[in-house]
Design a binder for these strands. Structure first.
Lengths: 163, 163
DNA sequence: TAATTTTAGTTTCATATGAAACTAATTCAA
DNA sequence: TTGAATTAGTTTCATATGAAACTAAAATTA
């Protein structure tokens, strides 16, 4: 039995890339993200980080940049740049926080709110199209599996970073 | 019932980012990839694309650049650059194909082979650590779900690109 | 208080990315 | 054949990324 006609995980001396979980996640995530990114860009001229910032403002209301970081899981540089660009395009505005003058508060403009209202249903439809290949019960399973994997992946990442 | 205390998928006017499949896939994939990328870099000075090229050469033997593209799902620019860097670091060598002088054939050097042999078990261990949160049956489920999603995602990407 | 440390956010810098243009070789068609 | 179209792979260019340095304000400590 050699690796070339082997449907199992292969030996300790060869890696079946197409069976390797990190690789599969990366390919799937990129396929999905690229499609969506293309649509956001073509329809609204927005990048994924920009859209994510708008999405959390649309959902949670005005936020500081660091709150937007937490809620989008993006780093502060990415959020800072996304916010700067959204301000240029008058999708959001920045108000200074009288409590703390280091902070500023980001909120959707009326234009941003309208754009947000247009994008949400499109994003939801894209997700539905994708999830349509799964049964209801498979979708529940997926939800659980992704949550477990994310918890574990974060754990491993944290312990690597500490080590 | 408003979105702020709602565990369902939310309304048509707000997006629950942390429930949104493309977002979850992206975060999970990045968490996993970043951890692995860090390890490949620290231990062997290799990037993920470089490692992927070595992995397919280790598994399938000598390949042309375009065969390496197919088998890694990376584009030709990425593969070209990864190959150039691997040649610099004497991990692989390039032999010209007498059949077709546009092509060159990439193969692991003996140093590359040794490095490959070192990395494969590490990669497999990292995957096992991650998959350890899942039961055997959950791992089977995940395999099926990812395959279905990938097939569908590719379908959607192709039809977008055509449209 | 004044000096020090911490925090919020931006800018800089070095690197990664992929689309498009390009080079060189091969194949196809007239 | 020979000119046009295709293919393999590289280089260029414009953009994205995140770590580290930085600025300014706030909190902490002496």
């Amino acid at each position: 039995m050699n690796a070339k006609n082997n449907k199992s995980k292969g030996s300790r001396s060869q890696l079946m890339l197409e069976q390797f979980l990190p690789y599969r996640l990366s390919i799937l995530s990129n396929t999905v993200s690229d499609t969506i990114a293309r649509e956001y860009r073509d329809l609204f001229g927005l990048s994924v980080p920009e859209w994510r910032v708008m999405a959390v403002l649309g959902r949670f209301g005005p936020l500081t940049a660091s709150e937007a970081c937490e809620r989008t899981a993006m780093d502060k540089v990415t959020v800072s740049r996304a916010a700067a660009r959204l301000i240029d395009r008058t999708m959001i505005k920045r108000e200074s926080d009288p409590q703390d003058r280091r902070r500023s508060i980001l909120k959707l403009t009326s234009r941003g709110t309208r754009t947000h209202q247009q994008i949400v249903p499109i994003a939801q439809d894209r997700e539905s199209e994708l999830a349509a290949v799964l049964t209801k019960s498979e979708r529940r399973d997926l939800d659980i599996l992704l949550a477990k994997l994310q918890r574990r992946a974060t754990e491993i990442a944290d312990q690597e970073r500490t080590a």
